[in-house]
Simulated assay, not measured.
Amino acid sequence: MANLKAAAIIALSSALLMGGCGNFGKNANEDNREDADIIHENEKEGGSLETGDGYGFDQFDLEIDVDGNDAIDTEYDVTKKAEGEYENKLTNTKLKDNEAMDELDKLFMDILITKDTPEDEVVEKVLQYYGLETYTKFDLEVNFDDGTNLDIERVK
């Protein structure tokens, strides 16, 4: 009798566990079923590098001139719709949309700037990323998610 009672409890517990934790919906066996989305508060406004759902800024505009000629132009803006432009005249590269975003992602993940990064360090990281030792104009504007701005404008 005790064995029968224990077996019934185990069977009932298993059924409840599978029903509560399992995925027995009509699309449960399909590979393309939709999973639940988890959205962080920061993600709604562009995200942050700390939460892993963004870069910590929603606008990034960079222009570098070398020997008085336009060399690098990048533009990243997610305030309305994620869009990017990337032009590197040194390597004869001009990208838009997804291709530009892929290239900008490499830049952003390499330089990893925050609102607290000193200006000299930002300039050094960007120049190092592009392999530049000198410039005649360096103009960078970044709008961070928390509302602070970074504006570096240097002319040599």
Score class of each variant (00 low, 15 high):
Q59E: 12
A71E: 04
N29W: 08
E50G: 04
Y55D: 05
E34Q: 05
F108R: 03
A36H: 07
I38A: 06
L140T: 13
K125H: 00
N29C: 01
D145P: 05
E63M: 06
N92W: 00
L140D: 03
G84I: 02
K94E: 11
T91W: 09
E133P: 01
D65R: 06
S48C: 10
K115W: 10
L104P: 03
E63Q: 14
L107K: 01
F144T: 08
F138R: 01
G68R: 11
V66P: 05
I111V: 15
D65M: 02
D77I: 02
F57H: 07
L49E: 08
D70G: 08
L95T: 10
E103Y: 08
F108S: 00
D37L: 15
D35I: 12
I64W: 02
I111A: 01
G84F: 00
V126W: 00
T114C: 04
Y76W: 04
D105H: 13
D73W: 06
I39P: 13
V66D: 13
Y76M: 05
L49W: 13
K106M: 03
L112V: 15
K96R: 08
N32H: 11
D73Y: 14
K89C: 03
K89E: 01
K115C: 10
A36E: 12
V66T: 15
N98T: 14
D105I: 12
D53A: 05
E121V: 10
Y55W: 10
N143W: 04
G52L: 15
D37T: 15
H40A: 14
N143F: 03
S48T: 15
I64V: 10
A71S: 14
N98A: 14
D37P: 08
L127N: 01
E63W: 09
Y130Q: 01
F138I: 09
T79C: 07
E124M: 06
G47P: 04
F60E: 09
F138S: 12
K44G: 07
K81W: 14
D37R: 14
F57A: 06
D35F: 14
E99K: 10
A71W: 03
Y130C: 03
D58R: 02
K81F: 06
L132P: 00
M101I: 15
G47I: 08
T114K: 06
E103R: 15
I39M: 11
G47C: 13
L107A: 00
V66I: 15
K81P: 02
G131D: 04
Y130P: 00
R33L: 12
D53H: 07
E99S: 15
E124T: 09
Y130W: 04
K80S: 15
V122A: 00
I38E: 12
K96A: 13
G52E: 06
E75Q: 15
I113T: 12
N69T: 10
T93K: 11
D105E: 14
